[in-house]
Amino acid sequence: MATSADKVRIRAHFEGPPAADGSRAIAVRLLIAPGWHVNANPASFESLIPTTLRTRVAGKPVRLEVRYPLGRTSAIRLQGKPLKVYENGTVLTARMPAPKLIAARADDELVLDVAVQSCSDQGTCLPPAELTTRLRPASCGFASPDVKKAPPHCPIGCSRTCTQAGRCDQPDPSAPLRIDDAHDARHHQQSTLRGHTGNR
């Protein structure tokens, strides 16, 4: 049976350099099939499932302040009220505090879960799903500001020296976490989420 995971994918990355307090901004882009959308957060009605971003480190939930866009006013109306929705390309943003970022580096993984319910522009909705992707910490993932080109044996993102084996002697502490673009195959229907399948 088709679920919302068949119409929506997610892609995540860290945006910009670390803030003065060491925190990092996370951006999660929604990749939605043409002719489909997901509910905004907050959803226009309590009976609708809002798009929600959650994070985990070492299997434990990490509470982040997530900024949800206002969404677009849809032509679909429910009880005479237009619905707020997210379309393809919508970006959810959050900020990860430095201590949580350090924990993610230690665990070598930050898990991002996005709960969605996709609906067609004609108002037909699929069962909700939870989409999962991962950001994997990398001490040498991107170029340091003071390194224009690393030696051939040195991973880009290392500071001035590295070993012949390709490991950093002095990893760049400001190097972003690299993206693991391979989406988790565990897209699954969420039985605990509110909502319904069918026509609005």
Rank of each mutant, 00 (worst) to 15 (best):
E87M: 06
T163Y: 06
V28M: 07
K7P: 07
K84M: 14
A94P: 00
R72E: 15
G198T: 10
G80P: 14
R54T: 09
D172A: 08
R178A: 15
P82E: 09
T93P: 03
T161K: 07
I102Y: 07
R29W: 00
A138T: 11
A12M: 08
L64I: 04
P127D: 13
V111D: 03
P18R: 08
S47Q: 13
A43N: 06
A185E: 09
Q122C: 00
G195L: 01
G141Q: 04
L126N: 10
S174G: 13
T90Q: 05
P34R: 07
Y86H: 02
I32T: 06
T51E: 02
P69Q: 14
A33F: 03
T197Y: 01
P97Y: 06
P99Q: 05
Q117C: 12
A103K: 15
R63C: 02
D169C: 03
R186G: 14
E65L: 11
P50H: 12
G123M: 08
S44P: 12
R67E: 07
Q170N: 14
A2N: 04
H153D: 11
S47T: 13
T192W: 02
L30N: 04
T55R: 02
T52S: 01
T73C: 06
T163K: 15
P42R: 00
T124V: 12
R134W: 04
R160F: 15
L126P: 01
C162F: 01
L193C: 00
T192G: 12
Q190T: 06
V38D: 00
P42Y: 02
G141V: 07
R178D: 07
P171M: 03
I32W: 01
G157I: 06
D108R: 14
I26T: 00
T52Q: 11
P97E: 11
A40P: 08
R29H: 11
A98K: 13
E46V: 04
S139L: 09
A175Y: 07
H187Y: 06
G89M: 14
V38T: 15
D21T: 06
P17Y: 12
P171C: 09
R9H: 12
F14K: 01
L78N: 12
V38G: 06
A5C: 11
E109S: 08
